[in-house]
Structures are given as C-alpha cells and as structure tokens.
Amino acid sequence: MLNKIQKNNKAQISEIMTWIIATIAILIILIIFISASSFLAQKTKTVQAQNLEIDFEKEISLLDTKTLIAYSFASESQRNIIEKWEQENE
C-alpha cells in the first residue's frame, strides 16, 4: 500500500490555482472596460440641435421663418436678392 502511494507521481492542481487564473482574467477584463469607458468619456459630449430627434416638418429655424416673412413682404427685386443670397450660401 505504501509503495503504491510513493509511486503515485500524478500532480493535482488545487482549486486555488483555478481561482488565481480566474482572478487574472477578471482583472484584465476590468482594465479593458475601465480604459474604454475613460476613453469614451474623454470625448466631449456635445449636445447639438441636429442630434436631437426633432420632427423637421413641424420645427423650422426661427431665423429662416423671419427671412420667409420678410420675403413675403418684399418687392420683386428684394426677393431676387434674397434668393440669390440663399443659393450662394446653401
């Protein structure tokens, strides 16, 4: 019996070794996610009107509305000026 125990050279990895490898894997994943979230946060979070979901059929720029109203009261030559300027600045 004792000879059998002495000749048994099979190595057994303990449960602790499994946890050590799991810890390393968890730490690596955490570092990746923390780095990614820091990188995303560094990009300035700019809020622009164009990014908002606005129904443009109902929402029109206030200044464009003022130009439209002026256009409706304007003479023929003044309308041509407005049209020309709008075309050049589109």
Binding site: I26, I34, L40, A41, T44, T46, V47, A49
Partner: peptide
C-alpha cells in the same frame, strides 16, 4: 473579494464616464 473587485471596477467605469459634463454651449 472577487465580488468587491468587480463592484469597484463597475463603480470606477460609471463614475469616470458620467463625471464628464455635457457641452451645451452651442445650443
């Protein structure tokens, strides 16, 4: 201990992201 490490990591991720303000100057 593993649970605390993961929870701490999540806390760091969320706080680093939401600590950056929104830039509303254009609006």
């Amino acid at each position: 201990v593993i649970l605390m490490i993961v929870a701490g990591g999540i806390f760091v991720m969320v706080s680093s992201f939401y600590n950056h303000p929104y830039d509303i100057r254009e609006i």
